[in-house]
């Protein structure tokens, strides 16, 4: 019985501090097989190509339709979602590795806390409650609604942070995704009240000035958000904010 197999070379790590190592697995081929489905097969029968039974590979996934962002990992050297990485469309053997821009918890499972922290820094929310009456929601500007909708697709998967050469342990750059979220909330009819706050936060160390224009972010974004366009817009906005800071006082 000559069944077609797909070879996976997986970079594993038992704990946040331990040394990474690789293991190889064979998975039965079937049409439409994707990386998440293959990882599920490995989980069912975690036996390496040498016939050794090992602990199942740990990874994260949720929606399986490129909406939640959880299954982001480095597949054949590039950051992308595992759920939409079809085996038929990628080179074999398939190399899987965790996105090491983030701290690795175990195997392919990473800790994305830094993205949430970055969203807190840039005030990635709309101030709704206060000492005022809460009225009906204001209407969105129809001319910018399309852009806001596009940026709101961001699922904080971290592809852009992994691909960006300026994000990592060597730098304090918060990364393209959280930076561009500032623009989304600046577009919001209520969020725009806090625009100066967000722009001032982006002018801090690790903010938008750490962008080196390598433009990898826009190439790898699985949601096709025009990150570099909005980064340039924010660069414009922070320049204007800087002039205001200097001359309004």
């Amino acid at each position: 019985m000559a069944e077609k197999k797909v070879r996976f070379v997986i970079e594993r790590q038992d704990s946040p501090e331990s040394q990474p190592y690789t293991q190889e697995f064979d998975v039965d081929y079937r049409p439409g097989l994707n990386v998440v489905a293959a990882l599920m097969e490995i989980q069912k029968n975690p036996v390496t190509v040498d016939g050794k039974k090992v602990a199942p590979v740990v990874w994260e996934c949720n929606c399986l339709e490129k909406v939640c962002g959880a299954c982001m990992m480095v597949i054949n050297g590039r950051a992308r979602q595992a759920c939409c990485a079809l085996v038929d469309e990628i080179e074999q053997p398939i190399h899987l590795a965790p996105a090491r821009t983030f701290p690795v918890i175990r195997d392919l499972l990473i800790d994305r806390t830094r993205m949430f922290e970055a969203l807190k820094k840039i005030q990635g929310w709309v101030e709704l409650d206060g000492s005022w009456d809460v009225k009906d929601a204001p209407i969105q500007n129809p001319y910018t609604a399309q852009t806001a909708y596009e940026i709101s697709h961001c699922m904080t998967c971290g592809c852009c942070l992994e691909a960006c050469p300026n994000v990592g342990p060597q730098s304090d750059f918060i990364g393209p995704a959280p930076t561009v979220q500032a623009y989304l909330f600046n577009l919001h009819p209520l969020g725009k009240f806090d625009k100066p706050k967000r722009l001032n936060a982006l002018m801090e160390k690790g903010g938008i000035t750490s962008c080196g224009n390598s433009q990898n972010c826009v190439e790898v974004c699985p949601k096709f958000i025009k990150l570099t366009t909005y980064l340039a817009q924010l660069n414009r906005d922070v320049n204007i904010q800087a002039l205001k800071n200097i001359f309004n006082n």
Binding site: R78, P165, Q215
Partner: peptide, 19 residues
Amino acid sequence: LQANNNASNYGYCRNRNFT
């Protein structure tokens, strides 16, 4: 020193220029 050049994995024109 804050850049971790990665043009070997992401060989786009702009990223090559970045490196």
